[in-house]
């Protein structure tokens, strides 16, 4: 069943057009990836889907409900959760406060406290550092916190914007395991945007290739991996052993 359906989406910042005619789908509990070089318009696409940016044209449907112009804070209530590029942890707040903020829109306060404990047990580092300020964590730790914060909202779909940026290979492996669990244990779909194909190709089921704001290739991961365009665009970036 299709959870997210984007059709002929166009985005722009003022006079500058970013995305043109983008159509994609994400099914219930699927892990889908959008790949593309820097400046392809991947983040802008996610911003539009998450509600931070109003699209210029086209439509976005979630659960068969039109969310094209739904602002971010309302999209959260529907289960569309984004983990933004650069983590964007609230640096002055503690790890626990960050986690609780992730669940801000939820009404079931007791369950929220349960979930905080759940996140702390799943991501050990969060338990260790629970009183530390967000700004004190390392890049990798912040990434885990950002994902945990996203999970606190009990997403139906989790939008991840370049989570592997700046992470060491070991952390990327951990990240991979987390993303698989988001699907399995937390039962959420994942839309993963990446510049570096390495992580995405090992974890996603289907993928799209974005270039100059448009979709230029799509299909199951196995096909995409061998796609000529993929190789052209990612010369030298092919995943090394997974």
């Amino acid at each position: 069943m299709t959870l997210l359906q984007v059709e002929h989406l166009g985005t722009a910042y003022g006079p500058v057009t970013v995305n043109r005619d983008v159509s994609l789908t994400v099914g219930q509990n699927e892990i889908v990836t959008i790949l593309g070089p820097n400046g392809a318009g991947k983040s802008t696409l996610l911003r539009a889907i998450s509600g931070l940016l109003k699209p210029r044209s086209g439509s976005i449907r979630f659960d068969d409900r039109d969310v094209t112009n739904t602002p971010a804070d309302r999209a959260v209530g529907l289960g569309i959760i984004m983990v933004p590029e650069g983590r964007k942890i609230f640096a002055d707040m503690t790890v626990r406060e960050n986690l609780r903020l992730g669940a801000y829109a939820r009404k079931d306060r007791d369950a929220v406290e349960e979930d905080v404990k759940l996140m702390e047990s799943y991501f050990e580092i969060l338990a260790q550092k629970r009183g530390a300020k967000g700004g004190e964590l390392s890049g990798g730790q912040q990434q885990m916190l950002a994902i945990a914060r996203g999970l606190m909202a009990r997403p139906r779909i989790l939008l991840l914007d370049e989570p592997s940026l700046g992470l060491s290979p070991k952390l990327v492996k951990d990240l991979r395991a987390v993303i698989m669990d988001v699907k399995k244990t937390f039962a959420s779909a994942v839309l993963l945007v990446e510049q570096n194909a390495g992580l995405a190709l090992t974890v996603a089921e289907r993928g799209y290739l974005l270039h100059n704001g448009r979709i230029v290739a799509s299909g199951p991961i196995s096909e995409l991996r061998d796609d000529r365009l993929m190789r052209d665009l990612y010369l030298g970036n092919t995943p090394q052993g997974h």
Binding site: Y13, G14, V16, V18, S43, T44
Partner: peptide
């Protein structure tokens, strides 16, 4: 691209 892309 920042949200301040639209310059006055």
């Amino acid at each position: 691209m920042s949200a301040d892309q639209r310059r006055d």
